[in-house]
Simulated scan of single mutants.
Amino acid sequence: MKSIYVVLMMGIFAEFSSFAEFRIWEDRSGRIWEGEFVTMNAGKVVVQNQSGTKTEYNPEQLSENDLSYLEEIIPPKLSLDVSKTSNSSTSGNSESIICRASIKKANTRIYKGELTAVLVVLAEEMRTGAFSKAGASTEYSFVLPEKHGVVVEFESSAVPLAKSSAKSGRVYAGYVLVVWDRFGNPVAVQSNRDSFLERATKIARPRRR
Rank of each mutant, 00 (worst) to 15 (best):
M10V: 00
G113F: 02
A162Q: 10
R109E: 08
V47W: 00
S79M: 12
F183Q: 10
M9D: 11
S96M: 08
Q48P: 01
I97C: 09
S195K: 14
S17R: 13
M126S: 13
V82P: 04
N58V: 06
I98A: 08
Q61I: 04
N192E: 00
A42K: 15
E72R: 15
S156Q: 03
A106I: 08
S164H: 15
R127Y: 05
A106V: 00
F154Q: 05
Y175F: 15
S132V: 07
L78E: 01
E146D: 14
D66W: 05
I73S: 07
N192I: 01
L78I: 02
T90L: 12
Q190H: 10
S94P: 00
V46S: 13
S164F: 11
S96D: 10
P160M: 07
T85E: 15
V6C: 04
V176S: 07
E198C: 00
W180N: 03
E146G: 03
R109G: 06
A166Y: 09
D194K: 13
K84P: 00
F142V: 03
S132C: 10
T90C: 00
V179R: 09
I103A: 08
Y111W: 10
V151N: 03
S96A: 06
L67P: 06
G129N: 09
V38I: 12
S91M: 05
L80R: 08
I98K: 15
Y111Q: 01
G174E: 02
Q48D: 00
K105D: 05
F154V: 04
D81L: 12
F196N: 04
Q190M: 09
D181A: 03
I12S: 07
E15V: 09
V121Q: 09
V143Q: 14
